[in-house]
Nucleic acid binder design. Structure first.
Lengths: 166, 166
DNA sequence: CGGTATCCCATTTGATACTG
DNA sequence: CAGTATCAAATGGGATACCG
């Protein structure tokens, strides 16, 4: 499982945990309110041994926590931690991409909505710190405070952009 | 590869293509400006046969397109299509989550910035259609126009929320 | 319910060699 | 450069059995 391609990259790091599709489905079910081992198992159709291993890994990573819900230590609830809950924007972006590009406008089986108004969310887009919407080509990758020499070199010749010529 | 867990779910569908970590790394490299087979191969350290298969799949899915860049059909460029480019918000959300929860504030090796101001992007958050920021617990999943009976039943008893009691 | 322990099979992987 | 072909080895997956 652990691979750690290019250690400096947040994407590579996140894929160390989430490069597996079962893991995303478990997280999705948690957002849908599932908490119990058997609920996860049945709703996503995963084998018990795999679910057990994935949940243990997610707990190690601080994404889930396991709570004993009584019955003399025979009932447990798996809940997203704060760290796990902040995965929601990623899930939302995936939902919206899937709705637009897999199902298409007007053919969505599931929509994400504002709980109060029941109207669909705005499509997630990048913004600057003033809240202004940025086009995709206005987004760039830059070395951060802890960039290694290799990362700086790599970023110097890259663009994180989409509209450059050959 | 193809699994199609719960066919109605955009997450399950997206994972059909992106449930594999190599695929995300290929897309990341494309955003960094890579276009050539060998560039991808070396930069992410993937075996040629795997890269070949993944790229073919991504082209099938309309995420990439292959362009002959001369030299009598011996040089090709792989580029993101419009569909592929709109994956960027997902990548941004992943970057930001990784920066916050893997590296931590002030310790980021790579930052995503506004190309003009060079300042980091705003952290992606859900908003309603008026642009108002929603808390995670204000986001809900609702049946869309093409929800199956099963999907409606499932959503009726779920919450896509995080703050409910047991 | 909430797991652990095996076992075995199918698939995936990555190295190597080869090609135009 | 841009792949295809092959193949042994590792891995992952799922079924079954078992347990507190």
């Amino acid at each position: 499982m652990a691979r750690y391609h290019s250690f400096d990259c947040p994407i590579a790091r996140i894929l160390n945990t989430f490069g597996d599709h079962w893991t995303w489905l478990i997280v999705r079910e948690a957002f849908y309110g599932k908490t119990r081992f058997t609920e996860f198992q049945r709703s996503i159709g995963i084998a018990k041994n795999l679910l057990s291993e994935r949940l243990a890994h997610l707990i190690d990573e601080g994404i889930f926590e396991r709570e004993d819900v009584g019955n003399r230590g025979t009932r447990y609830a798996y809940r997203l931690t704060e760290k796990g809950r902040t995965l929601l924007p990623i899930l939302i972006a995936m939902y919206q991409w899937g709705n637009t590009h897999v199902f298409g406008d007007g053919k969505e089986p599931v929509l994400l909505v504002d709980r109060k108004s029941k109207r669909p969310l705005e499509t997630i887009v990048p913004r600057d710190q003033e809240g202004n919407v940025l086009s995709l080509s206005e987004v760039a990758a830059a070395p951060g405070p802890k960039a290694s020499k290799e990362t700086k070199a790599k970023l110097a010749q890259s663009v994180l952009s989409v509209d450059r010529g050959v």
